[in-house]
Design a protein around this nucleic acid. Sequence first.
DNA 1: ATTATTATGTTATAATATAACGCTATACTC
DNA 2: GAGTATAGCGTTATATTATAACATAATAAT
Lengths: 131, 131
Amino acid sequence: MTLRNKELSKNQKIVLDYIQKCKKPVKAYSILSNVNKKGLKAPPQVYRALDKLIEIGEVHKIESQNSYIACNSTCTSPQGTIFSICKSCDKTDEISDAKLFKFLSEVKDMNGLSLSGYNLELFGTCSNCKD
Amino acid sequence: MTLRNKELSKNQKIVLDYIQKCKKPVKAYSILSNVNKKGLKAPPQVYRALDKLIEIGEVHKIESQNSYIACNSTCTSPQGTIFSICKSCDKTDEISDAKLFKFLSEVKDMNGLSLSGYNLELFGTCSNCKD
DNA sequence: ATTATTATGTTATAATATAACGCTATACTC
DNA sequence: GAGTATAGCGTTATATTATAACATAATAAT
Ligand SMILES: [Zn+2]
Ligand SMILES: [Zn+2]
Ligand SMILES: [Zn+2]
Ligand SMILES: [Zn+2]
């Protein structure tokens, strides 16, 4: 049983289900208010679920937006993530460009740093907003 | 007169001076308490200065840490930033690897996104912490 | 000089995230 | 299966990060 397929707890399932239904990244307090009817009443319940889901790679945090998005399953490891983010409409996609992954993963001993992970956020305008 | 060399206001100078003195990224409220004696008394004064300094490229935000660091002057544009971050001691360096810059800047029309900027945060262990 | 723009000082509040505590469920191990 | 370790839950309170709003002052542009 991989980390990823590990049995999730009740709250973890509820939070993951909700995030997966969302097209766009969602904020923690928005998750909270949307799963309120499922019994989650306070921030720690959401944040604890998020911590676990992020740890096992089912969810990623979009750092520049303080928001959370479900992994699209194409990322090979939770340690390396790449996102394209539309500054106009917030459309956000996890990118699985092999060349980019390879390039970043091969950044060895950059500045004396022995690399264990990375996060790349690409900003721009999506095709829908371009017109 | 370039954007970068523009005359700064009093509060902007105070905040930039302080950030430049710091070896590591600093938090907004830490800046606030450290420039208190210079007359900045409330968060908006710091955040407004930060907004401007970030806009002109003198300061960058380390998104994963909610902290701020002075530009080391090697980055060509405020729109593309790369940092190496030690997870053990928070040592953070702005990286100016030409190949990496070039590679990222050439990510054209990734996922339909027309790129206007990016931020890459590399995590790992610095040489001091490696032992 | 008039006007537009930018910055300031201040109070209050919003938004994001964690500490701490007592309790419960589950897994492990002997 | 009893004992014990680990992970999760529910709850209250609080810490941390950031912005809204408003009145005033300084600076730049016409
Ligand atoms: Zn992923
Ligand atoms: Zn868009
Ligand atoms: Zn820079
Ligand atoms: Zn270190």
